[in-house]
Amino acid sequence: MVTNLNLVDFLKEYVINSYTMKPNRVVIEVEASKIREVFSKLSETLDREAYYLATIEGTDFPEKNLIRIDYFVNVFGHNTYLVIRAYLPRENPIIPSVIDLVPGALAGELETYDLLGIIFDGNNYLRRSFFVPADVSSKDIYPLRKDSGV
């Protein structure tokens, strides 16, 4: 049985910082460019029928000039939640796509691209002007950015 501690342990070569989010979610901060390695390591170590990617969430921090991206992984086989967190520069938010490793990332990646403009490198299905009406998206506005004015 892998406990919370071990989860951080077997990913420790990638972990920059780790802490818990309320209530008892394990957060690990990783390098954005290493995200594919983290997910391959995850699928090697854990049984494929023990976890799934619940969602991808992005937050904009204009004052720090960063965009944060969180991958919420429900490791239900071990009754725990893993949050993989990475920071991207705000001008050029590019992160490698994990869509071929975890097909379930599709919904989250497209949503985050639409709302926040994070570009998932390797995902060929990213498209604008779906969720926001065409008049907003044609102006290149990402509504969830704090300075979008929406």
Partner: peptide, 20 residues
């Protein structure tokens, strides 16, 4: 296996025999 890889949830994944 597909149900989990594609992140399906709820009665859909339980209908495929995954106890989550």
């Amino acid at each position: 296996r597909e149900a989990l890889a594609y992140s399906l949830v709820g009665p859909v994944v339980r209908g495929s025999g995954i106890k989550t």
